[in-house]
């Protein structure tokens, strides 16, 4: 049985936030509203990270997804003309996406539930991590020679490539307009 304490209450509230926001995203016809519902949903995910003793990831979640991605989505919406109130568009391939989504959902659910199914008798608590935080450990691991220094540098190259690609694509569009 689930114990009723501050953490479970917080989890319930956050889940309502995440699911409600996600529902808003898919039901609204207004793209800007959709972006804002997404912000709400992502805020809830940041809360999940806090509950999982990963406050650094929570900050990253808010900083990148709300502070940057949501803004970028709205900028993109504004780039397109009169996209804010779309009429219903019939898509003949809806059944294909429905099947894909259901399959993906089943796959994810199985992937999450199966590894912990049957383990841990009632009352047994799985501790995720003894230490809270760990930004310093993360930083040390990122630049350690036997750690993740290679992925760290590759991430930098990836970001550079992303920026160059974005500029090339965006500037070309601009030139065509002119």
């Amino acid at each position: 049985m689930i114990e009723l304490n501050a953490q479970t209450i917080a989890f319930a509230v956050l889940s309502a936030l995440v699911l409600g926001g996600a529902l808003g995203v898919v039901t609204t016809r207004n793209l800007v509203h959709g972006a804002l519902w997404l912000v709400l949903s992502l805020l809830g995910v940041a809360g999940y990270f806090v509950l999982l003793s990963a406050p650094f990831l929570a900050a990253v979640q808010v900083l990148v997804y709300i502070g940057a991605i949501a803004i970028l989505i709205v900028f993109a919406v504004m780039l397109t003309r009169s996209m804010t109130s779309l009429g219903e568009v019939r898509n003949r391939q809806w059944w294909l996406s429905a099947i894909t989504v259901i399959l993906l959902f089943l796959l994810l659910a199985a992937g999450i539930i199966l590894p912990v199914w049957g383990r841990g008798a009632p009352g047994e608590v799985t501790t995720l991590s003894a230490t809270v935080g760990g930004a310093a450990e993360l930083g040390a691991a990122l630049v350690a020679g036997d750690g993740f220094v290679l992925p760290f540098e590759v991430a930098s190259i990836l970001l550079t490539a992303a920026m160059i690609g974005a500029i090339v694509v965006a500037r070309d569009e601009e030139d065509e307009q002119a």
Partner: peptide
């Protein structure tokens, strides 16, 4: 309709945002 310039600023910011987040743990350690 807005100009593409806003989008480019947003993109450049996003890239730097992710970069700086990688640097914070580095700075702490």
């Amino acid at each position: 309709q807005f100009r593409v310039q806003y989008y480019i600023y947003g993109l450049v910011f996003l890239i730097f945002d992710v970069e700086m987040i990688f640097l914070f743990p580095w700075a702490v350690a």
